[in-house]
């Protein structure tokens, strides 16, 4: 098992004069399921297209399985890509869609048939082999697209927003399916997403990107619990982030005096860490929403907006109510300037 199965070295990507990725270094392990995560425009899709060979890097090199493929055309790289739109061939049946790449390899007909049947079976579509893509549901189309890539036995399988076009129930199903296929085939998979929940649920490791630069790389646990930057913290649900000053913490509207024991940088709280109903600070409820097991509040305080959640069984506050709250130091995530973040403990 190679630790540098896919290796991007000093990769620089641009569309014409617009630089998307200035210089990227990334090593992907053999057999892992890795997510490229970030908001739109962060360069995640561009990076994926470069790995596939659909766009040429300005500078830098791409290695796959120890071979420099930087100049290898896309059709010779042996990489699969499941498009967000699925990109199925509408004029061909499900069977012929899956057989497409195999036939190009000049494989004999019996071999093609057995491989396609196996491929359709793997994704549970054997009974729909004769259907055209237009006669299939979104979930089925996606599985067909997946199967079409998998029968080629690619070295790396790339997936562009694999769950975004599916409804909640299918999403869960597909997630399980992808993990199962990855375990069974051992194929290295790279998927692109803007949804942190999707990345957390599916990936062995997550590459968080911002403006073409890797902001943080680590396991789901590491990114969720130990975000390395303000951007990462914000992306993984620390919705209350404030700068630390000598006297207290500073938001976009004002500051909150208090002792926070942190010297510099930022302090961050998840909505669930904010205490509502008691505490030294005062604010006005400007928004409340019921979300099943919990209630979500937006509280307008001296330093700006505070997002908080409380168990639904707690006392309910209405819009306009004055409410006491606390930002407890225990449970806050501290992001000092230029150093690693730490969990504050009292």
């Amino acid at each position: 098992m190679s630790d540098r199965f896919v290796s991007l070295q000093k990769l620089s990507l641009a569309y014409g004069q617009t630089e998307v990725v200035p210089e990227l270094d990334l090593d992907i392990r053999e057999g892992e399921l890795i997510a490229l995560l970030g908001p739109s425009g962060c360069g995640k899709t561009t990076t994926m297209r470069a790995i596939a060979g659909l766009m040429a890097p300005k500078t830098g090199k791409i290695f796959i399985d120890g071979t420099d493929v930087t100049r290898t055309p896309a059709n010779k790289r042996g990489i699969g890509l499941v498009f967000q739109s699925y990109a199925l061939f509408p004029h061909l049946s499900a069977f012929e869609n899956v057989a497409f790449g195999l036939r190009l390899k000049k494989m004999d007909n019996l071999e093609v048939t057995s491989r396609v049947e196996h491929g359709l079976n793997t994704v549970g579509l054997a009974h729909l082999a004769a259907r055209k893509p237009a006669e299939m549901s979104g979930g089925q189309q996606q599985r067909l697209s997946l199967s079409r890539s998998l029968v080629m036995e690619p070295k790396v399988l790339l997936l562009d927003e694999p769950l975004s076009n599916l409804d909640a129930r299918l999403r869960l199903e597909m997630r399980t399916e992808l993990q199962r296929l990855q375990r069974e085939t051992g194929i290295t998979m790279v998927f692109v997403t803007h949804d942190q929940a999707e990345a957390l649920a599916l990936a062995d490791r997550i590459v968080l990107m911002k403006e073409g630069v890797i902001e943080q790389l680590g396991t789901a646990d590491e990114l969720y619990n130990k975000p390395a930057s303000k951007f990462a913290a914000d992306f993984f649900g620390f919705e209350n982030i404030f700068a630390v000053s000598d006297a207290g913490i500073v938001g976009n509207k004002g500051s909150l005096a208090g002792t926070f024991e942190a010297q510099d940088g930022h302090l961050a709280w998840r909505p669930g860490a904010v205490v509502v109903g008691k505490g030294p600070y005062e604010g006005t409820v400007t928004g409340v929403a019921f979300a099943g097991e919990q209630r979500e509040y937006v509280i307008e305080a001296a330093l700006g907006q505070i997002k908080a959640t409380t168990p639904a069984t707690d006392k309910r506050y209405e819009i306009g109510d004055s409410v006491a709250f606390d930002l407890p130091l225990a449970g806050a995530w501290h992001l000092p300037e230029g150093r690693q973040g730490v969990l504050m403990a009292k």
Partner: peptide, 18 residues
């Protein structure tokens, strides 16, 4: 016609003309 389709064909081994 979605242009993704041609890229999909290329990744499955087709040339651009193919």
């Amino acid at each position: 016609l979605e242009s993704d389709m041609e890229e999909a064909a290329v990744l499955l081994g087709c040339s651009r003309v193919g």
